[in-house]
Design a binder for these strands. Structure first.
Lengths: 151, 151
DNA sequence: GTCCATGCAAATGATTTGCAGTATC
DNA sequence: GATACTGCAAATCATTTGCATGGAC
């Protein structure tokens, strides 16, 4: 479950930054597309529908702020666009990351949950003396429809 | 073990593209830094030491070619630079990927081998009907030295 | 000799920044 | 009312591209 507007306002105040229409609209655009993986330009277009005077620079500055507040995550699918998505399950202390399946054919992105890396992280800790705090996993391949077309 | 210059020349010929000094030097720069994770600019600087007249555009074009020939891999550490590294173990048919530990403190990148994702890929195949062909894993955290400094 | 490859400079495209006006607290 | 935030336009920076020259086969 993603963050509500009210909770967002509280977080902004707690961090000593101002609550502005633009910030709320950017957050809401990201919230409204929970599986969106939106680019900055896409967020800009979405917000502009409701608030035409917003500038692209403000969108970038707001994205930066949301990243610093850990309310959104950056995703790089190596297609030349950086994307952002709302961070989910902020309440739980455990890092229930979700990861991405990326179809090489149609570019579709499917999210999935898995904690299988726990074991790997522990192993890394032991053998490499490296403390893992976070991870990012991308699986490339072919989605069901595209595989059917290829066969 | 990474590719030799002779093997590289053969691959170029097999693919109907010309063997040029520039291409060889770029490949050798990447080979000489097996753990380098070089940026295009860094490759440019390395090659220029031996061959000052090379242009940055040629470096980019060669990187593109090497990627298409699957001789190098692209790595994105989300620090604003795209990096490249020589592909290892090209001879074995199995995908013995290596992954990266990235220190959030000093930025150091440590490579490691692991096939732990085999299990996950199989599960994805079964439950999501998605055929995984490749994967990329990045583990963020703190290396031994930096952890020591923090404590 | 034929083309592909190169070097240079200009173009591109995402992101950033400077600055004067504006809105929040 | 002070100051952080915004919008705009200009700047930046990695990467790409057009084109005339040069090199590989």
């Amino acid at each position: 479950m993603s963050i509500t507007t009210d909770k967002f306002k509280t977080i902004l105040k707690e961090n000593g930054v101002k609550v502005t229409t633009q910030r709320i609209l950017v957050l809401e655009a990201l919230s409204s597309c929970p599986d969106g993986h939106l680019t900055a330009e896409e967020i800009y277009d979405l917000v502009r529908a409701a608030y035409p005077e917003i500038g692209l620079a403000t969108v970038y500055r707001t994205i930066q702020l949301l990243l610093e507040l850990h309310l959104i995550d950056r995703i790089n699918l190596d297609d030349g666009f950086v994307r952002y998505e709302i961070g989910e399950m902020k309440e739980s202390r455990t890092r229930h990351h979700h990861h991405h399946l990326i179809c090489r054919q149609c570019g579709k992105v499917i999210s999935f949950q898995d904690d299988l890396l726990e074991e790997l992280e522990e192993k890394i800790q032991r053998t490499m003396h490296f403390t893992v705090s976070d991870h990012e996993v991308k699986l490339y391949g072919y989605c069901e429809e595209c595989r059917r077309k290829i066969d």
